[in-house]
């Protein structure tokens, strides 16, 4: 069974289903119409090519085919996360984490298309459950998430206080900063001393030569 085609088919289905759920994606997709973006993710054995029209078609680039696309990206899965912030693209290229060839705007627009998807899940659920149940489910869900976050924050504060104040196994932030400053001062002093010693060494090697002359 052609595994690459199975994977590309799955990716294509997911992307197009998500795009259908957000009416505003049509405008973003229009900007990409008739463009092709190829993506080489290092962890995957295949290069995928995204072809844009009123939908996204995901093709697999065959090994013996010339890589012809309007924009080509080569990156690892961990870098994919960082692409959410399009202002970071230049830094990622400079660090060698991202290879980008062709029209950078296509990569930015595609990133924008995926990250700015605004899907009203509550509205979607209401089609099956009715407005009231959908609204209450989402309100309860949001409440649970909010309270879980608050509890996690409180727990982190309590554990931090216990480690610093009661058990004394961690240092307060201000002490860490002070320690870092001291280390930096010591490093500068050591560097100065090292430079002085080098200078003295070079002077002492020169003076016997002068005496012999």
């Amino acid at each position: 069974m052609p595994a690459a085609q199975l994977v590309s088919s799955g990716i294509e289905r997911i992307i197009n289903q998500l795009l259908k759920l957000d009416a505003s994606s049509v405008l973003l997709l229009q900007k990409l119409s008739n463009k092709q973006l190829s993506v080489d993710i290092h962890e995957l054995p295949w290069i995928f090519k995204f072809s844009f029209s009123d939908q996204v078609d995901v093709l697999t680039v065959m090994p013996d085919e010339e890589l012809l696309s309007d924009c080509h990206l080569a990156l690892s899965l961990s870098t994919l996360q960082k692409l959410k912030d399009t202002s970071q693209i230049t830094r990622l290229i400079q660090n060698g984490e991202l290879v980008l060839e062709g029209d950078v705007a296509i990569a930015q627009q595609f990133s924008q298309l995926i990250t700015e998807l605004d899907i009203d899940w509550e509205e979607l659920l209401s089609k099956y459950t009715g407005d009231l149940l959908a609204h209450n489910t989402f309100r309860l869900g949001k409440k649970l998430i909010h309270s879980a976050k608050a509890k996690a924050n409180r727990l982190a504060t309590t554990l931090g206080d216990a480690a610093i104040e009661e058990k004394r196994i961690a240092a307060p932030a201000i002490l860490v900063v002070d320690f870092c400053d001291q280390v930096n001062e010591l490093r500068s002093a050591t560097d100065r001393l090292s430079a002085k010693i080098s200078r003295l060494e070079s002077q002492s090697t020169l003076s016997p030569n002068k005496q012999s002359n």
Binding site: M1, P2, Q5, S9, L59, T60, M62
Partner: peptide, 10 residues
Amino acid sequence: RLWKRFTIDC
């Protein structure tokens, strides 16, 4: 469907 996708890819 996968055979046809392969054809398109080629």
